[in-house]
Design a binder for these strands. Structure first.
Length: 418
RNA sequence: GGAGGGCUCGCAUAGUGGCCUAGUGCGGCGGUCUUGAAAACCGCUAUGGCUGGUGACAGUCAUCGUGGGUUCGAAUCCCACGCCCUCCGCCA
């Protein structure tokens, strides 16, 4: 939800931002008009309510002679108030709709364009040269670490079992991620994977991404696509002490995605699946600190990838490819030898106050209570990371090199062999 | 799944149709007194919208779990839902 004051102060910037995303800039004007209409409706209803209050009070003290007249006037006002309140409710709903239709204002410096127009900010590590590389599915099967055939038998396409060393790899990654997060001051959290509609809507996942989300119709609950949802909802409708900011949480949960629009993409293996586990970083900071926090989240993501000894690049995602809550997004993409390509492993978004407005998360500022900024960043999306580790660290003899940082959780093993 | 009880200002509680412009206690903040502290006493004490003001602020409307309804008037009466607690059943 966008800051209306900001919008009024600089509607041109908001229009430009919409254009950069490839969205309709006239939504800005529609929103301003809806806001004006609402103000008018509210003020009309307020005036009528005040008058009704006065008249109603005088009913009890009216003399028997004047009573019928006062009562008649009160009834008349009562009807008018009802009308005015209906108008107000309609205006409120229209404003909300206009607000939900508009995406966050893009941060200055975000590259223009669409999916292919990202800017590479950094390239890290040496891309491994592998002759006739095998993909992670093949390696995972040989190691008896990944079982996609039985995943399909039991649950369907895009499901998998992690077995043996595969299961151990997941636990090792979770431990490594949580250890790093705790050391950096994050509060470790095991978060629910099922949330109420309000929570899902507040985090902005029922807009453009609605078809990506699993819904349990019988119980009116949603399966989260990321623990960001639960971590953002965690402090909804709260006023946070300025002194306790920044609040940083590292959430572990299963994530569920319908992958509705991705037929044919990454159908093999566990790069794109309906369910995976993930450790996610989530920060609540004062609005003015959001940009700096975003850089910190990116740095923590890079630290983790460095520990895994992966070659990767950092990209600045273009405006047209941003989620509606994000003002800016950086992705870290690691090298997959079997694909000869960088693939997204982590992603961090600065949602500024956009998400906090919807979820009503504030802190006491100089001008009263003001929304905080929320930011999220992947620390480790397990399935895809395992896929990358197997692919990236494969050896000519069919074994897989284990990065030093993971060894303490894998019994000191330096190589995984079939 | 069944049966009960509850949801009021940060916390605890009062409040069965107009005197509620929601009282009281605790906590918190400020002050008086004191060498300092405690105690005592005095004052303040939420959120959102709208209007006015550069501003501290002032005025006004709304908010007693949520949404409807009855009524001139609802914390209070009626209906539905949500959440919490207790007990029973089932269960990792």
């Amino acid at each position: 939800m966008i800051d209306l004051k900001l919008l009024r102060d600089d509607p041109d910037r908001a229009r430009a931002s919409q254009r950069a995303r490839g969205a309709d800039p006239s939504l800005v004007d529609a929103l301003l008009a809806a806001d004006d209409a609402r103000r008018a409706a509210v003020s009309r209803a307020d005036t009528l309510r005040a008058e009704q209050k006065t008249v109603s009070k005088s009913v009890a003290s009216a003399s028997p002679e004047e009573r019928p007249a006062v009562l008649a006037r009160a009834k008349e006002l009562s009807a008018q108030v009802k009308d005015a309140e209906a108008d107000q409710a309609a205006a409120d709903a229209a404003l909300r709709e206009a607000q939900l239709a508009i995406a966050n204002i893009v941060e200055d410096g975000v590259p223009p364009g669409g999916e292919d127009d990202f800017v590479t900010l950094a390239t890290v590590g040496t891309v491994p040269t592998v002759d006739a590389p095998r993909d992670h599915t093949e390696i995972g099967e040989a190691l008896r670490a990944i079982d996609t055939a039985r995943g399909a038998k039991v649950s369907g396409a895009r499901f998998y079992f992690l077995t043996g060393i595969g299961a151990q790899l997941e636990l090792a990654l979770v431990n490594l991620a949580m250890e790093q997060a705790s050391a950096a001051g994050f509060v470790p959290v095991i978060a629910p994977a099922l949330v109420k509609p309000e929570t899902m809507e507040g985090t902005g996942f029922l807009g453009a991404h609605a078809s990506e989300v699993y819904r349990l119709a019988d119980d009116d609950l949603y399966l989260v696509g990321t623990s960001e949802v639960a971590l953002a909802g965690y402090h909804s409708d709260e006023i946070l002490d300025r002194d306790e900011l920044p609040l940083r949480y590292a959430g572990f949960s299963s994530c569920f995605r319908r992958e509705a629009g991705s037929y044919g993409k990454d159908t093999k293996g566990i790069i794109r699946v309906h369910w995976f586990d993930k450790v996610e970083m989530f920060s609540y900071v004062p609005a003015e600190d959001a940009r700096e926090e975003h850089q910190r989240l990116l740095a923590w993501e890079r630290e983790f990838l460095d520990k895994l000894e992966l070659a990767y690049r950092v990209i600045d995602v273009a405006a047209g490819d941003l989620g509606s809550s994000a003002a800016r997004k950086y992705d870290c993409e690691a090298w997959f030898p079997s694909q000869g390509a960088y693939r997204e492993l982590t992603s961090t978004s600065n949602c500024t106050t956009f998400q906090a407005r919807r979820l009503n998360i504030r802190t006491r500022g100089q001008n009263g209570n003001e929304p905080v900024a929320t930011l999220n960043g992947t620390l480790c999306a397990i399935a895809r990371t395992i896929a990358c580790l197997l692919d990236h660290h494969q050896q000519p003899d069919g074994s897989v090199y284990v990065p030093a940082a993971l060894r303490p959780w894998l019994g000191g093993r330096e190589l995984l062999t079939p």
